[in-house]
Design a protein around this nucleic acid. Sequence first.
DNA 1: TTTATTTGGGAACATTCATTCCCTAATATA
DNA 2: TATATTAGGGAATGAATGTTCCCAAATAAA
Lengths: 184, 184
Amino acid sequence: MDTALDGAIRVFCERGYHATSIGDLTAAMRLATGSVYKAFRDKHAVFLGAFGRYTAVRVEQTRRAAARGANGRERVRHVLLSYVEHSQGAEGRRGCMVVGSAVELSAVDPEMRARVTAQLKTNEAFIAGLIREGQADGSIPGHVDADDTARLMICMTQGLRVVGKARLPLDGERLAGVAMKLLA
Amino acid sequence: MDTALDGAIRVFCERGYHATSIGDLTAAMRLATGSVYKAFRDKHAVFLGAFGRYTAVRVEQTRRAAARGANGRERVRHVLLSYVEHSQGAEGRRGCMVVGSAVELSAVDPEMRARVTAQLKTNEAFIAGLIREGQADGSIPGHVDADDTARLMICMTQGLRVVGKARLPLDGERLAGVAMKLLA
DNA sequence: TTTATTTGGGAACATTCATTCCCTAATATA
DNA sequence: TATATTAGGGAATGAATGTTCCCAAATAAA
């Protein structure tokens, strides 16, 4: 089931919700039409399932990236580096399902909008937490506003996925280096 | 014609390309089906026309915002403030056509991807120019890397449109204030 | 005034889509 | 072994989509 959802994630990331046909889904999930509808009520339910798995995986990847840092400041830096990395290459061209859902569905699908905003707030709270850790361990100055800075960084990370999907090259070290000024 | 395109822009921003039916378009453009196809070859051509007008209007608005600043640094600040403003309220919920096209079409429509990257590069070059102006007039330190900083700011602005479409509240003064640290 | 020409409108058409239905094979149950 | 239940596959279906075709009104030309 998870491997089928991984296929759905791939095609939903790349083409979005509306441009993905059931035919695209059955090919990507390696399941016949009837089997898809036996496992999910409809296309929307497949999307919801894929979105849930996508966010779970991404949250875990981001947490692992943060864990590579020895203090709060370094943990923020590794999170930013991780975002740049995921915004590039094959995965970057494929795109982010949160960004895609926000852009394509949040105006017309209240349920998806709620899930998107929830995910954004989770990510934002995670970064704000890292900033506060850094202030506690002395690696980030106390005058930095954790909430405002985290919100701006969320904008940066979501924007990275947009720019990455448009295939502009992104240099992780340089961009993260500049972004770390926000913690000065 | 421009007023018809404005209607098309409205609906394309809100729903994107694939979720916008010809019925949606005729309603928004106040034109019958036949009239739309007399003015444009097909739906894709309507989208191209709307995209062209959208970017022209947005570039002009951004230039006007920049002109409100007395030096390079202030001009950058006003551009950021303008982006936050446009990412909020009714326009923010409607969404940005460049972001929407990047996310929905750049993987499947090479022509649109080219237009999107061209627009992103134009915006980026504009901001980089403002930074260099600031370095010339002394309002921005010379050690700031104009290109890297501009690219990061483009990510921020595109991300603002994503977050704004998801309806998270954005405080222009606070966010722009934090972002100005990038020019330190 | 009469005749072309253009402009706007909407019904008709073919295609594509999401969904349902039913069949077959495999596994579990008795 | 015989039967019941599940899982998977794919054709059939009805709705919706993009596009074309043709009509009617208005304007320009004769």
